[in-house]
Amino acid sequence: MKNIMDDLWRSYQNCQFLLTQPLSPLLSLSIVTAHNPLGKTLSPSQNRLLDRQLQAKIQTFKQPYRSMITTSEQMSHMEKSWAIFFLGQEEALALGQAFQQLAIYHVEAGELSLMSCVEHDPRQVHLGPLYKRLKLVNELPELNR
């Protein structure tokens, strides 16, 4: 399991984000997904169900949020994600843990960090400016895989 986690952790560091509207470079936000809990690939319908549950939970925070796609650099793997503005780091980690995610992304003053949601694995790595990983698209791709 450790090798799988290490492989996933490395892949999480090489991500980009697809979105349909630009983000202010100085906002505080967290990026969370409900797809593929514990790193296990689920069917598209299972991921859509989890995504709807995550969106419903996000709405209870009464903070602005926006959908996006988190993708590998080669765009070979994509997951629907949510940018939640003004959500504290601890709240974001708890949300990731509630949806059995291995990690979340957190942004402070435009600087992106990857944070482990695994209790006994407090890894965190700074990934640099968020804007370098953002890609504006006309519409988000459908996730059928």
Rank of each mutant, 00 (worst) to 15 (best):
M1E: 06
K2T: 14
K2C: 06
D6Q: 13
D6G: 03
D7P: 01
W9S: 08
R10C: 10
R10M: 15
N14W: 10
N14L: 14
Q21K: 08
L23D: 14
L23Y: 14
P25F: 10
S28I: 07
L29P: 10
S30Q: 06
I31T: 02
V32Q: 01
H35Q: 07
N36V: 05
P37D: 02
G39F: 00
K40V: 08
K40P: 00
T41R: 05
L42V: 05
S43H: 04
S45R: 05
Q46C: 08
Q46M: 08
N47W: 08
N47T: 11
N47L: 14
D51E: 13
R52W: 05
Q55E: 11
A56Q: 12
Q59Y: 07
Q59D: 08
T60N: 03
F61T: 12
F61I: 06
F61S: 04
K62N: 15
R66F: 15
R66H: 14
R66L: 15
S67T: 10
M68F: 08
I69H: 06
T71G: 02
Q74T: 14
M75W: 06
S76N: 15
S76G: 15
M78E: 15
K80N: 11
S81H: 09
S81Q: 09
W82S: 06
W82H: 08
I84E: 03
I84C: 06
L87I: 12
G88S: 12
Q89I: 01
E90T: 04
L93P: 02
A94D: 13
Q97F: 00
A98E: 01
F99R: 01
Q101H: 00
I104Q: 03
Y105E: 03
H106W: 13
H106M: 05
V107G: 07
E111K: 07
C117R: 00
E119C: 05
H120R: 04
Q124K: 11
V125S: 10
V125E: 11
L127Q: 04
G128R: 07
P129Y: 14
L130M: 15
R133H: 07
R133F: 12
R133D: 10
V137M: 10
N138T: 09
N138K: 04
E139Y: 04
E139P: 03
L140Y: 09
L140N: 09
P141Y: 13
E142V: 13
E142S: 11
E142H: 14
R145H: 14
